[in-house]
Design a protein around this nucleic acid. Structure first.
Lengths: 396, 396
DNA sequence: ACTCTTAGGTCATTTTCTGACTTAAGTGTG
DNA sequence: CACACTTAAGTCAGAAAATGACCTAAGAGT
């Protein structure tokens, strides 16, 4: 194995990538980082600017000499579409290339709604969002890609769900065709947790080079970032956390059909079920549960904290194995961040290596409720502005 | 994040890397893989051959046209030294650049022997191994590097152990100076498990792009390979498996000072202790235990199988999280591979996702008892023949 | 014997990069 | 407040490197 972490892509697309990810901001930075000569950098930057991808911003503060001109991607060089489909909710949005939401729409649907029913609706909503945009003259022409996420395993190559037990009516359905009325830009599908991880890594030097991204929602999943990269990127699956058998779950029946899964004691669906059994029929969704807890409901608080404790026990193995610096908490339960992490911390300190547990920081997902959607946008943008894609664009 | 898995290093060193790792064997392969023109490849191959790094082997079988000339690294362009220090044993060796052991020596030492006592001995043994070599005229001059491994955490940058609770007398001692009488080639230190993983990845297309490498020896550790790369490479630590608290261990006191660690029910030291308590004072080491089990001793077999079961329970979390294709089993317990994996399989099927567990293959470590040592050699070779190092060499 | 296929070398042309020179635009100082 | 100093960035001739058309080599198939 070669430690090529010092390697930098010196192609024009590579330079744009350095600028996009915040590792460089000026031509001088690029010269330093790439080892390229000033001339070569000037030429590449010129080409990127000519292609309308790069903007020369205001001068930065001087550091004792001539102030550098800030370079940045032109966020309006195009837009991407983002679609995050959940069990009972779908979010769609239009994003600029800086990853900012330009327009968006969230709608609930009946759990169990299949692709054939939901996707035309998604396409229609995307279409009207695009039509509603004022600024760009011909917005549809400038759609550079679509990022789509689903719970469960997907095949990114064909943009098809492959194993989505929670999403009946999606397995094996090719999703790209549904979007053809809106755009013929490439459609990228990934797992909902992968996409959550992406939203944390997008366009900046990440919080930590090694971290875990917990998606605590209806189900439980874990994304792993090692050396600043998403582990298993492009495989369309992420860490199954929810269906590991744990002692405390005993013989409780899980929605996956097995018994004793972690989800039965710490998954959102199980917590909601527990409240409902206790007569709280107003609680229909994890979001309701989290809201109740935030409002001070003792039962909900107790449940979430307990869930955190159970979660922490399994998480401890991951922490020991990977020695991450941080745990990012996303998903619907993350609304009650403090409660959940308090529980996790508790059992982590009991179960994991003391040094590893102590050093751990807990951070809420950057974009909160819309983190998944932002991740979908990040997916599409990263693909559209992939160094090699940009190079190909410039060659035209 | 950019999926640069399709990226290939087209520098001369990059070509050598492609040849070394078995992804290319002929000039034509290199042309196909790199997209470089024939001329460019010819020039680079020529330069590598002129530097004495590359050998033109016999012609390969024709595939309907002129047979291709096989290119391969000259395995005798240099040697590397390998040193694997364990709790009670040190292995040293001289390896050619193809990773073949040219000379080696294994010696037991008193557990607890410090660096100050052992390292001069290691250096002396390396010196006499080198002196004993017949083939190369001036062998010491051709030592391209030293690979060294220790149990516990290390700082690769300074070649110093940072946290080796099992290895008192090694913490904070810079190891490179001890080897200066033998060679002034660079000394590379890594964790024993990292090095085990390296031995699996070295010089070939790996068994699986995603796999776990279990080191089951006195202690328990896990190396993770995702997308063909060692996760956390260069951090000098690997997956702590042994010190995760598990239910079954109850309040058993671990050698780390805590209670309830997995090691207390599945670590080699604990199994040996258990046999000794039962009056089997002839069993002093995990190797004795494994040997007994292989010889049919029912008590030893029972213990190993049980250890496998405990191990599998924690391993299940890793399997669910990472969906590996294979688990490579190394370490002293791996001698009793069948017993151990039978136990692991059992609880894995009970605890992990059925699909993930079913697809899993169990494979013994390629180099058996000497896997760690081979890994040390692999470390030194990979560093010495790193594309950028080779490029630098050619520029001279 | 011949044609086809694949491997591999050669070299003039083209592409690309460097590196010295120049301009620009700020800071600090006597 | 002129003047040296520092940092940023553009320009272009010369140097370096890659390409791609053309060539030879050496087997298989018929």
């Amino acid at each position: 194995m070669v430690t090529d972490e010092t390697w930098v892509d010196t192609s024009p697309g590579g330079l744009l990538h350095l600028l996009r990810t915040g590792r460089a901001a000026t031509r001088a930075d690029l010269v330093r980082l790439t080892g390229l000569s000033r001339g070569a950098v000037t030429a590449r930057v010129g080409a990127l600017a000519a292609a309308g991808l790069l903007l020369e911003g205001a001068d930065l503060a001087s550091t004792g000499g001539r102030p550098a001109a800030a370079l940045r991607l032109d966020p309006d060089a195009g837009v991407v579409l983002a679609v995050a489909v959940g069990r009972s909710r779908s979010q769609v949005g239009v994003f600029d290339l800086a990853g900012r939401e330009v327009a968006g729409d969230t709608r609930d649907h009946e759990p169990g709604t299949g692709a054939r029913d939901l996707m035309p609706d998604v396409a229609a909503r995307l279409g009207s969002l695009l039509d509603g945009l004022v600024a760009p003259s011909a917005p549809r022409a400038r759609v550079l890609g679509v990022g789509l996420s689903l719970p469960g395993s997907v095949d990114p190559a064909t943009a098809t769900a492959t194993d989505a037990p929670v999403m009946r009516g999606w397995d094996g359905v090719a999703l790209a065709p549904y979007l053809s009325p809106v755009t013929d830009a490439p459609v990228h599908l990934d797992n909902d947790t992968s996409v959550l991880v992406r939203s944390e890594l997008f366009g900046r030097v990440p919080v930590a080079r090694d971290m875990l991204v917990l998606k605590a929602s209806t189900g439980l999943a874990l994304g792993i970032v090692a050396d600043g990269r998403l582990v298993g990127e492009g495989r369309g699956t992420t860490g199954e956390l929810g269906h590991t058998r744990v002692e405390e779950a005993g013989d409780l029946l899980c929605r996956c059909g097995a018994t004793g899964c972690l989800e039965t004691v710490a998954g959102g669906w199980a917590l909601v079920a527990r409240l409902q059994e206790a007569g709280r029929s107003d609680v229909r969704h994890v979001r309701d549960l989290a809201a109740l807890a935030l409002a001070g409901d003792p039962e909900a608080r107790q449940l979430l904290r307990e869930a955190g404790r159970h979660l922490g026990e399994t998480l401890a193995v991951a922490v020991n194995l990977l020695h991450p610096e941080a745990v990012v908490v996303g998903g619907d339960m993350a609304t009650a961040f403090d409660l959940l992490t308090a529980g996790i911390r508790e059992s982590l300190h009991a179960r994991a290596h003391p040094a590893a547990a102590r050093a751990l920081r807990f951070v809420p997902a950057t974009h909160g409720e819309a983190a998944g959607l932002h991740g979908c946008a990040a997916l599409a943008i990263d693909r559209a502005l992939d160094p090699r894609a940009v190079d190909a664009l410039l060659r035209e």
